[in-house]
Design a protein around this nucleic acid. Structure first.
Lengths: 158, 158
DNA sequence: CCGTTACCCTAGCTGGCAACTAGGATTTGA
DNA sequence: TCAAATCCTAGTTGCCAGCTAGGGTAACGG
């Protein structure tokens, strides 16, 4: 498994929130956990990460809960996954800076050539980040989807 | 970390083998471990996986060792990573069949709609597999690289 | 205001597995 | 026949994903 359940559950929480109309008010973690069949106590940690990343807003007290901090169209999946998983790197030695550039941690060490395999891992990392960047939460909001369309089915296959 | 050290070390072993000229004969694990600074006993397990996958050939006994089973141009990184890591899936519920098609394990379960997030994970998986498929081991064979060329440097950044 | 509902925070646990190590059996070249 | 190598099966061990526990704090409703 490439991503942990943090990303898996967290993305489902975000998709759940995106699927609600704003007029419904915030959704409580309790209701989300029940609807998605996920452990509520665990979701609290994930919700905290999402909140700290500025992706959701919370309201405390009775009738409180979580709602999206921005419209779903303005939230990329890269933001979501990064908030949940931390930095996205295929292996230890590849790091992605804030500017999006990749560096091998061994670079610059005197007498140490960069991993010969950096080219591979950089490409993998790049393709993942690009894919996550190009997708917004709005695309995941389930509109009571009937059957996948032809184009969707094609996209799903490698 | 997305990939484990199995992929990291194993790819380095393959790159090492690809960097040798065929006339040198097989390379012993001992020499590879020393050159790459990796634990030899651990590499034995990885070499076994690579051999079972038909990616390397082994010769036992004195002056034995490992060599590529095919020219580096004919080995895709997808094969290598798959041999080392097992199936490549971003999260538990996404599985890639031998045909390259992706399915969500929950599909088909009566009364259970497919993950709304399948679209996301499928795309991520697809982009990873595509990247790995499009790259051959030959591209990783270090040609005693002096300094990275301009084009290489550009490719490295996202 | 008071009780209920929810978020919020820190701490801990625990089973599984990644990342090795150990030790021997087997094959082969010189 | 010896030494060098692969091969095979079994461990071991530290860490961390994936939770649970228990309280504190804010807000709403009546």
């Amino acid at each position: 498994m490439i991503f942990s359940t943090k990303a898996e559950y967290g993305v489902r929480v975000m998709a759940h929130l995106a699927g609600r109309s704003a007029s419904d008010g915030p959704a409580s973690l309790h209701s989300i956990a029940e609807a998605e069949g996920l452990p509520q106590a665990y979701l609290e940690h994930l919700a905290a990460r999402l909140r700290r990343a500025g992706l959701v807003e919370s309201r405390r007290g009775a009738r409180g809960g979580y709602s999206l901090a921005r419209p779903a169209e303005a939230i990329t999946m890269a933001e979501v996954v990064r908030a949940l998983e931390g930095r996205i790197a295929p292996i230890e030695c590849i790091t992605d800076g804030a500017d999006g550039n990749l560096t091998c941690v061994r670079e610059g060490e005197p007498g140490h050539a960069p991993c010969p395999t950096k080219l591979l891992w950089s490409r993998v990392q790049g393709s993942i980040v690009r894919t996550l960047n190009d997708m917004t939460l709005a695309e995941l909001a389930r509109p009571a989807a009937p059957a996948p369309t032809r184009t969707e089915a094609e996209t799903l296959n490698v």
